[in-house]
Every structure is written in structure tokens, then in C-alpha cells.
Computed example of a mutant assay.
Amino acid sequence: MKRPDLPPSPRRSWSTPLLLAALLALIVASFATLRLDLAAFFTPEAVGTTSEFLGGFAPPETAAPFLRKTLDAALETLSMSALGTLLAALAGLVLALPAAGRWGGPPRAAVRIVLNVLRSIPELVWAALLLVAAGLGPFAGTLALAAHTAGVLGRLFADALENAEPQPEAALRANGAPALTAFFYATLPQSLPQMLSYMLYRWENNIRAAAVLGVVGAGGLGQMLKYHLSLFQMQSAATVVLAMLLLVALVDAISYALRRVLTR
């Protein structure tokens, strides 16, 4: 009996092993070029200096006037992160539509370049630039968060819109619905839970970023921390650090609960 012809074996691809080998070589080269002296952290002198430095933070400052001042700064940091994330979500959605190839407008590649520029500049650099124009305070910090996060959310929103199923919108368009109506009733509901999840995750990150932005004079807890550290008021700085940790934990818990509700 004649044996049926077997299908040809697939050609072996070397792209994945070559990529892994290149990454491994890059990691090895990174460790070879960086002079990491990990043993220096565990010398008696380093341990003693670190213990003395950390001991200066105890006990944290608990005077009522200072706690009220810290609470005001924490609320300012929270407001900066929330408003910055909201402005970034609105700007990101506006930029995501042409970036996803929706409704003509600016060239898709040009909008993608704008998003790359926005998110490639760190929040601290944005804050340093905006402090020149807006002056010291939370306004510059809020705009810095919004500028960087708009680039991140715009890219994520564009990807979510591109991954949405096109058939529902095409069916509405075939039945005479306008393009905007078809988008709001067919494509946006598919992408909205994912987009909201992205926005909440960036809010968590912006809480941390807002606390750091104060170091350059953008207000909030970061500005308090820089002030007290520069004066070597370690106990007051410890209270500010604890307020940062509590604020981040609170926002993480709220964001986690909201994401759970959205994914049900």
C-alpha cells in the first residue's frame, strides 16, 4: 500500500533564539560595564552610618499643627494626581481617535509621534519646564502629570480602540447610522472598561509621581519632604514619608476596588 505523502515539516525559525541570545548578551554587558560594589553596603562603616541616619527619623513628629499641615499637603497631592489623570484621560482620548485611524483628521503617524514625545519626557522634566511658565506650586505639577500621562493613555486608548471588534460598528453604519453614533454605540462600549482600567492604573502611578514632583517645587507632600530634609528635620520628614505611604495605599485600595467593579 502506497503511503500518503507527508506534509513538509515547517521551517525552523531562528529569530526567537537569536533575540534571546542578544538580550542575554546585553544583560551580561550591562553587568560587565557597571561597577557594582555590593559588598560596600555591608561594611561596618556603612552599616553604622545607615543605622545612625535611620535612627534620626524616630520618633515621627506628631504635633497637631504639623499633622494638619501634612494632611493639607496630602490632599493637595491627591488633588494633583486626580485632576492630572482626568485631564490626561480627556486629552488622551482626543489623541487616541486619530492615532487609531478614526475619522480622518491628522495623519496617524504624526499623532503617534506626538504621543511618543509626550510620554518619553518624564514628569520631573515636564514639571521643571512648566515651573518656568506657571511658577511654583501645584498647578505646574498638575500640568506635568497631565502632559506625561496623556501620552501614555493616548497610546493605550488607541490600542484598545484598534482591538475592538469592527463588526458591530460596521453593521450600524450599513443601516444608515452616522459615524459618530456608530462609534459611541458599538466601538466605545467595547473599549470603555479597558480604558477605565488603564486610567485607574495611571492614577495609582500619578499619586507616587505627584509626591515626587514636589521635590522640584510643585507642591504637595514632596515639597514638604524636600523642605524638612534640607533642614535635617528628620522626625518631621518621617511623618511626611508615612503620609505618602498611607496615601499611596489608600489610592491603591480604591483603584483595586473600582477595577473589580468594572471587570464584573
Rank of each mutant, 00 (worst) to 15 (best):
A253E: 09
I121N: 07
L129T: 01
A211K: 02
A253Q: 12
Y198Q: 05
S81V: 00
K69G: 06
D72Y: 03
L250S: 13
L20I: 04
Q167S: 11
A171H: 12
I207Q: 00
L231M: 12
R155L: 11
I207P: 02
V241Y: 04
R68Y: 08
S15F: 03
A74N: 03
L156I: 05
P166M: 04
A170P: 02
A182K: 02
A25I: 00
F42N: 10
E169I: 09
T187E: 00
T77F: 11
T263S: 15
A147P: 00
F31V: 08
P122D: 10
P193Y: 01
R35L: 05
L6W: 02
L129I: 13
L250N: 06
L71P: 11
P59G: 13
S236R: 14
G104M: 10
W103K: 11
L145P: 01
L229T: 12
R35T: 15
R208S: 06
A63G: 15
T16N: 01
T85P: 05
L26D: 07
S13L: 01
F184D: 05
G220C: 12
A58D: 09
I254F: 08
V216W: 00
A186Q: 02
L38S: 11
P178V: 01
L180R: 10
A110C: 06
G141F: 04
L130I: 08
R208I: 00
P178W: 02
G214T: 04
A177V: 01
L23N: 01
P178A: 15
R264W: 07
L67D: 05
V114A: 14
R35W: 08
D5Q: 14
V215F: 13
W103I: 15
L130Q: 11
T77S: 15
A174P: 00
I254T: 14
L19D: 03
S236I: 01
L71D: 02
L67E: 04
A100L: 04
P59A: 15
L18V: 02
A32G: 11
R119D: 08
G92Y: 03
G105L: 10
V241N: 03
L200T: 08
R3V: 15
A127E: 07
A150K: 04
A237T: 09
Y185A: 11
V28M: 04
F57A: 07
Q190E: 07
F66Q: 10
A174T: 07
Y227F: 15
G135Y: 02
D72M: 06
E162R: 10
W14T: 00
A158V: 03
S79G: 13
A146K: 04
Q194L: 12
A133H: 07
R173D: 02
D72N: 09
E204V: 08
F139Y: 10
L38V: 14
I113D: 02
G214P: 12
L192T: 11
M1A: 15
A46M: 07
W203P: 03
P17T: 02
